[in-house]
Design a binder for these strands. Structure first.
Length: 640
DNA sequence: GTAGGGTTAG
């Protein structure tokens, strides 16, 4: 028999421990789980009833505190049934439960992933405050229900509840996932109105929203106006630059902020590594890796994933694999990063082997990116048969992944590579998607390689209609006309290009030497040693001509005579970077050139001859993949 | 009781 005296001797915490054990036992019983909660259950629940009774003796406040403790324990133990019992008990016995108790129930249900139940609590509670609204909005947002979150936010505003810093941080993160920034912009004005712009959480959410919408200047402005900064806001702006491919700025900002006292954490390093992957700055990447090891930054999977990506995009799949092998825990992204690495290097066999290993291990389920990486690996690695077989398996639903546009894109690429242009064309028309310019572009590239003017012209014209502003399409179609000797068409195309005022992203290439990136533009006017470099390119050209190199004049798009065209070609940024790499590095050392666009046919040829002449390994990373050239032969098989 | 930054693909 329990007496009041013994109850008072208990602390609520001790009580709840006894309770949670009982609740955990009850949750484990499947027959209880299958039954909907009934108030009767509480009567026979024993331990719970006694504990609550015990607390009730200490007055209503203690009951509320008891409920809170219980709900916390239920969240920790993921005891759904227990929480439901507390909920039922609260409804039955409490007269006017306070708002915070209702809110705790919302949190309990959202943490167990039961958004519907949480929403029911919100709808049923007699009074709501900013915390209860925000808890529900945040749950919707985090589970990916952006429109529900926004809808609720609007309801909250209509109910004349003032949003607080939590609400704004949450709703801005929700806007980040939406297309465009119109909505985020409107929320921004609300933020200003409510005077939360300088709040560090709201500020970082706000700048992240702008950065992810591509508005990096706005993001930077928010960042610069923050009265205080912490590692999260700093990381947000750095990763903003990195994700938009403004890699140099990301690195510079990182160095500056670090000098100013920012203490980077594993997320910061992951973002910095992304920027270094973009620049293919292997030595910088190694340095960051060393730094991370020395500082004993915890090796979270995310950081290791970005190390794998950095090493493979910087040309070292061996190092990437070393990191991969060292990991005790791998996520699907780990596997994907490694597969993509092999794929970009044209290592088809390794892609297929790793994929088989992944399937055999069965710890991680392949997703659509995995299959994309394997398909693209087969395509770039000369395993078209295996790739087509995998494609058929995907279509038949054998991999449990819905085929997407990109998967079809890979197949078009494979058919094109195999010279089956008609099949590729038909395949595009039979796809269950409206073909994107990228799909047509891939076929156009295939037509150029196989000199198929008939299909190429059809595809090229379609592309010019779809994206008249993309200079690349004009270039390839013009190449194609040139190979067929259709000079009149080449001229017309050039006029059309002028008329549409097509702006071509300026091509640039770079080499990394002694931790310095040397960047070259076409017919460079900036690099201090450009004079020597031009001479070197001319010299190389003369020497390889003796070996059989013939400039591919169709790669020069200007309406000038052949001599001028050759001069233009010799000024291409990748040739300058290659020549500089040869000049500035020791004999026999491989030269690694990186280009921001796709490498042109003439430069590819040029590099092949140079690798033969100097017995040097040349690796060229372009927008799509790596070209490893040894003794005049490239791993891409002259198709890219 | 409620909140912000991160890794693969395109």
């Amino acid at each position: 028999m329990l007496t009041k005296a013994t109850f008072c001797a208990h602390q609520p915490m001790q009580l709840s421990r006894c309770l949670s054990n009982a609740l955990a036992r009850q949750t484990a019983c499947p027959s209880v789980l299958q039954n909907p909660p009934k108030s009767d259950t509480l009567r026979s629940g024993g331990c719970l009833r006694e504990a609550l009774l015990e607390m009730a003796i200490q007055g209503p406040e203690m009951v509320f505190a008891g409920y809170v403790t219980l709900l916390d324990e239920c969240v920790d133990k993921r005891a759904l049934r227990g929480g439901q019992r507390v909920h039922a008990h609260m409804i039955k016995t409490c007269y006017l439960p306070p708002i915070y108790l209702w809110t705790r129930l919302i949190v309990f249900y959202t943490k167990l992933g039961l958004l519907g139940d949480a929403r029911r609590v919100l709808d049923e509670m007699p009074l709501r405050n900013v915390v209860s609204w925000t808890a529900m909005i945040s749950a919707y947002s985090q589970k990916g229900y952006a429109s529900e979150a926004l809808d609720l936010f609007q309801q909250m505003l209509r109910s004349e509840t003032e949003p607080n810093e939590f609400t704004f941080a949450t709703i801005l993160a929700t806007c980040t996932g939406m297309s465009g920034f119109q909505l985020g912009w409107q929320v921004h004005s609300l933020v200003i109105k409510n005077n939360y712009e300088s709040h560090i959480f709201v500020g970082s959410s706000l700048l992240d929203m702008y950065a992810k919408a591509g508005k990096i200047h706005e993001a930077r402005e928010v960042f610069e106006c923050l009265p205080e900064r912490d590692v999260v806001s700093c990381t947000a702006i750095i990763s903003g630059y990195a994700q938009l491919g403004i890699d140099e700025e990301a690195i510079e900002l990182f160095s500056r902020l670090q000098r100013e006292g920012m203490d980077p954490n594993y997320v910061t390093y992951a973002s910095v590594l992304t920027a270094l992957s973009g620049l293919a700055a292997l030595n910088h990447g190694r340095q960051v890796h060393g730094h991370v090891l020395r500082r004993e930054v915890p090796f979270y999977v995310v950081l290791q994933n970005s190390l794998i990506d950095m090493y493979s995009k910087c040309g070292s799949v061996t190092y990437a694999r070393r990191v991969f092998n060292s990991m005790s825990e791998r996520t699907v992204i780990t596997w994907n990063a490694m597969l993509v690495g092999y794929s970009k290097h044209g290592m088809g066999r390794q892609v297929v082997e790793l994929f088989e290993f992944m399937r055999k291990e069965k710890k991680v389920k392949p997703d659509s990116v995995t299959l994309l990486a394997v398909l693209s690996g087969c395509s770039h690695g000369g395993l078209e048969e295996r790739g087509l077989q995998l494609y058929r398996e995907i279509i038949n639903g054998e991999h449990g992944v819905q085929p997407e546009m990109e998967h079809y894109g890979c197949v078009i690429d494979m058919l094109g590579r195999a010279g089956q242009l008609q099949e590729a064309f038909e395949h595009i028309q039979q796809m269950p998607f409206e073909p994107t310019p990228a799909i047509w572009g891939s076929l156009l590239g295939a037509c150029r390689v196989h000199s198929n003017v008939d299909i190429g012209e059809l595809v090229g014209r379609k592309l010019l209609e779809l994206e008249p502003e993309n200079a690349g399409n004009y270039v390839i179609l013009s190449n194609l006309y040139a190979t067929a000797g259709r000079w009149e068409d080449v001229r017309n195309l050039r006029h059309l290009m002028k008329e549409k005022a097509v702006i071509k992203e300026p091509g640039r290439s770079w080499v990394e030497l002694d931790q310095v990136l040397h960047t070259f533009h076409a017919s460079d006017r900036f690099h201090p040693r450009r004079g020597e470099v031009f001479e070197k390119v001319k010299d190389l050209s003369l020497k390889i001509k003796a070996l059989g190199y013939v400039p591919e004049l169709s790669c020069a798009l200007y309406d000038v005579d052949d001599e001028q065209k050759e001069k233009i070609l010799l000024g291409h940024s990748e040739k300058l970077a290659l020549a500089f790499g040869l000049m500035a590095s020791a004999e026999g050392v491989p030269v690694r050139v990186i280009k921001n666009l796709r490498i042109c046919v003439d430069c590819h040829n040029f590099a092949k001859f140079v690798s033969k002449l100097y017995a040097r390994e040349i690796s060229l990373r372009d927008k799509n993949r790596f070209h490893h050239i040894v003794n005049g032969i490239c791993t891409c098989g002259d198709y890219w």
